[in-house]
């Protein structure tokens, strides 16, 4: 386990290093990036950039400086928001994004598991078809389409919930739902296939042969075995939520990281784009690592085998 962990952390560092380098060289050589066309910058900005990255120095020195800053957690300053540090801007915006992300993940996983379990237990009945169809819809319909529809029907036409604002729980309901459809679909599909496989396994037949009822077989034996691998989809789910958060936050005007990111793309605020990129990459790789470790801990089959799955 320790060996596996070290290996994984080394990969994580390499991955982050590549992403950071990539962002640096993009900033450096990107046509139209502020690092390239200094004449586009204001005097203030140029002074700050020169100070920070030593734009007059040779490229290797700049690269080293930049990487040092990234390691220290300094992601530069924003152009659009009065030269505030990107790290501070990210921190300020983290609250709503995290809240929405967790709400969506939590609700989505629970509903998804429920749908998946029902579908597997009543395989080839209308319950199964209904749940599977919902899952296909959730997987297929882009979050921005769904979010816009929700906003139009519930917010504009029916007026039940605030259309686009961020104050209080009520305003978080629609964006949460819009974000949750992806985790719902992912969890439901995964649970269903996993459980169907479990249900056809020998140990389930043995559990039946012991005289367990269908419910006992499902709850004592099958679901636990089906739930364990579900941990592995938490990573892709987090990716999906992050993707979704950009458009959903944009649509519902939520002061989160995603909305800020989309705005900075529109306004060519490169330090924020790059900073957010590195931040997202860091978050995702760490989440995926944690998920893998978690999987090893929960599954007794893997626990003692030293995790030689790759």
């Amino acid at each position: 386990m320790a060996k596996y962990l070290i290996k994984r952390i080394i990969y994580l560092v390499i991955t982050l290093f590549i992403i950071a380098s990539l962002t640096f060289f993009l900033m450096k050589f990107l046509p139209g990036s502020p690092f390239q066309n200094e004449e586009k910058l204001t005097e203030d900005q140029r002074v700050i950039l020169d100070e920070k990255y030593g734009l007059d120095k040779p490229i290797p020195v700049q690269y080293a400086n930049y990487m040092m800053n990234v390691v220290k957690g300094d992601l530069g300053v924003s152009f659009q928001f009065d030269n505030q540090p990107v790290t501070k801007l990210l921190k300020n915006r983290m609250g709503p994004s995290l809240q929405l992300g967790f709400q969506a993940m939590f609700i989505g996983t629970i509903i998804g598991i429920l749908l998946g379990v029902l579908a597997a237990m009543f395989q080839n009945t209308w319950i199964d078809y209904g749940s599977t169809f919902l899952a296909v819809l959730g997987k297929s319909i882009p979050s921005f389409v769904f979010a816009a529809l929700l906003q139009y029907v519930i917010g504009v036409k029916l007026g039940w919930l605030p259309v686009a604002s961020w104050n209080g729980f009520a305003s978080s309901i629609m964006p949460t739902i819009a974000l949750a459809i992806f985790p719902i679909a992912t969890a439901a599909r995964f649970m269903r296939t996993e459980l169907i496989e479990v249900f056809s396994s020998d140990y389930i037949t043995l559990a039946k042969a012991k005289g367990n009822s269908r419910m006992e077989v499902s709850f004592k034996h099958a679901i636990r075995n089906g739930l364990i691998p579900l941990v592995t989809v938490l990573g892709p789910m987090a990716v999906g939520l992050m993707t979704g958060s950009m458009v959903v936050e944009k649509i519902f005007a939520i002061p989160g990281i995603g909305e800020q990111f989309v705005k900075s793309i529109m306004t060519n605020d490169f330090p924020i784009i790059m900073g957010t990129t590195i931040f997202f990459a860091f978050l995702l790789t760490v989440i995926i690592l944690i998920v893998d470790i978690l999987y090893g801990i929960i599954d007794p089959r893997i626990r003692l085998q030293g995790g030689d799955k790759s």
Binding site: Y11, I18, I19, T23, L26, L30, V239, T277, S310
Partner: peptide
């Protein structure tokens, strides 16, 4: 080849796509 793959797949594709489109 597997090590290369592992590193590349560690980078979230959304981020790569956005970065590429900026260049």
């Amino acid at each position: 080849m597997q090590r290369i793959l592992e590193v590349i797949s560690g980078i979230p594709n959304l981020i790569v796509v956005i970065l590429m489109l900026l260049i």
